[in-house]
């Protein structure tokens, strides 16, 4: 994770230059995605933001809670990424009695923060 964190920053610089005149090229998109994953991880682990570790065990995080399931095999559990996003946006829709806060609906995370968290969680 640490290694990939450095390259995207360079890529973002390049992205800024390119963005003005070109449609986003495939190579640049993947760099931007890598950056979103890294940022998503920070937001997910931040106590005042996602604070996902309060309830979920996540690779790379310490002292995780055990209220929710460990976040593993996410692509297998959510074939459709939009469903994962919907779960984080407002988990009470699919699980009415859940303790999980509605991160999008209650604006705990901004739209962009939520998108990044989804990108990160989807890599797990």
């Amino acid at each position: 994770m640490q290694k990939t964190a450095k390259n995207p920053r360079v890529a973002i610089g390049a992205l800024a230059i390119i963005l003005g005149s070109f449609a986003i090229a495939p190579g640049v998109v993947s760099a931007a995605e890598a950056s979103a994953v890294e940022e998503g991880k920070k937001i997910a682990f931040h106590r005042k933001k996602g604070n996902c570790l309060a309830c979920h065990k996540i690779a790379g995080g310490s002292l995780a809670g055990n209220i929710g399931p460990a976040l593993v095999n996410m692509k297998a559990r959510f074939a459709d990424k939009a469903k994962l996003r919907a779960k984080i946006y407002d988990a009470t829709v699919s699980s009415p009695n859940t303790i999980m806060p509605p991160f999008g609906k209650h604006k705990i995370l901004t739209k962009s923060e939520l998108d990044k968290v989804v990108e990160f969680i989807y890599t797990l």
Binding site: A54, A64, N66, I67, I99, H106, I108
Partner: peptide, 21 residues
Amino acid sequence: GQLNMSCAHCHVDNSGNKIRA
């Protein structure tokens, strides 16, 4: 609250579970 939790969510449903440490 913004976190949308009841007292019972933590101290009934999840009593004995860990919230972080």
